[in-house]
Design a protein around this nucleic acid. Structure first.
Lengths: 221, 221
DNA sequence: CTCTGTGAATGTGTTCACAGCG
DNA sequence: CGCTGTGAACACATTCACAGAG
């Protein structure tokens, strides 16, 4: 039956899939599905069922043998693991096109993230309003009055490190970085990087390999 | 000295870092640095030097012992490996905020990607111009006249699968998906997914863990 | 008889540590 | 010497395959 013992240490690879499970489970719940098998979840996620079972068992979750997982229960369990019970205040720094797109993106609020501040250093932008939120400077951000859990960096690369330093100074320990630079942060601060050009280049690599393989096949065949 | 033999099979994890190396090397080249050591590259990338050496040796690249890697040579080598010698035509589907932000993003052209078409199904948008490019429908896309290497999906989740199917039908074999769904594509088509909410949830997980650790530390201490 | 949970096997990635080139 | 290149050790992740719960 397994006790409270196994409970610590969800593998990082599993953590990376938890949001995906949550998404799938939310959809299933909306369709009124009471339970789901590892096979079906695997199919929805594009992975194998053994992976699903390993992942979920690492949460200490209980499925029911012969039946599957209770959709609502598993949803709650994953949400709890991700710490989504509390609202997480987000500040977005850099109100260019991307920053504005993220503010307008509707997917945050329903997942427990609330954009509480917009920051830019362009005097033309400061004081304007985007999607009902005023754009300010860092000086307007009082860490006590406006606690921030996550900082999103959408500035040009040249400004990103300084912005990260400021965020860290404000007590932010999670940063999502869209600028194409490696941010240096103190131990204990988490950074995740998202970079369009990187992603495209990885895709380009695989295209290129296919081309090489094809042309070699032509010659051989 | 090693011949043309080792040349095949760059590990996927290494591929994921190649764009980063390229970025670092480009900066070094701009500063006029002729060569660089694995230690310094590692520092720029936020990884360990052994990793750098393993990665670069898997390309069959030659460093010079006692000196380091020739910046220009290594740059060329990585660019070649990524297949960046040829321009890759990109189509962006979904001209919402994110789609527009990507069109306006300046980081593509200098890295060998050219946005050749913008697609949306909103009649209000079709015919308008964004950053000098006309917005059309899929019907306007002739795969012969406008070959497309990479499709970028920035539509709502509900439309993404259908868009992916259409892209695949047009011969696209690389898709960058910003919609929060798992795309089903035939064997041989590569999909990379970027999802803001997923990234934030992963950050939230680590925040949550720290909190648990802290409170457990408090009780214990 | 179905589907979970999990040890064991395999595969992949990272790090160590050092031989050996320049 | 200083630095690369790489086997060997280790760590992590995935997959297999099956015992056993319901």
């Amino acid at each position: 039956m397994m006790a409270e013992s196994t409970r610590r240490g969800v593998p990082e690879a599993t953590v990376g899939r938890l949001p995906g499970y949550l998404r799938a489970l939310t959809e299933l719940a909306e369709r009124g599905r009471p339970s789901v098998s590892s096979d079906e979840l695997a199919d929805l996620m594009g992975i194998r069922s053994a992976q699903v079972r390993k992942d979920l068992s690492s949460l200490g979750s209980y499925g029911v043998r012969g039946v599957g997982y209770d959709v609502a229960r598993l949803s709650d369990q994953i949400a709890a693991e991700l710490g989504l019970s509390q609202e997480r205040p987000v500040v977005i720094v850099g109100m260019g096109n991307l920053g504005r797109a993220l503010v307008a993106y509707g997917g945050l609020a329903p997942r427990g993230f609330q954009v509480v501040a917009l920051v830019d250093n362009d005097p033309e932008l400061v004081g304007t309003t985007i999607e009902g939120l005023a754009v300010g400077t860092f000086a307007d951000l009082d860490p006590v009055r406006t606690p921030v859990a996550v900082g999103v960096v959408t500035t040009p690369a040249s400004a990103a490190q300084q912005v990260a330093d400021t965020l860290v100074g404000l007590g932010v320990r999670s940063i999502l970085n869209f600028a194409p630079v490696v941010l240096r942060v103190p131990e204990g601060v988490h950074v995740r990087a998202v970079d369009l050009a990187t992603e495209l280049q990885i895709l380009a690599f695989h295209e290129h390999q296919r081309l090489l393989a094809d042309s070699r096949g032509d010659e051989a065949g």
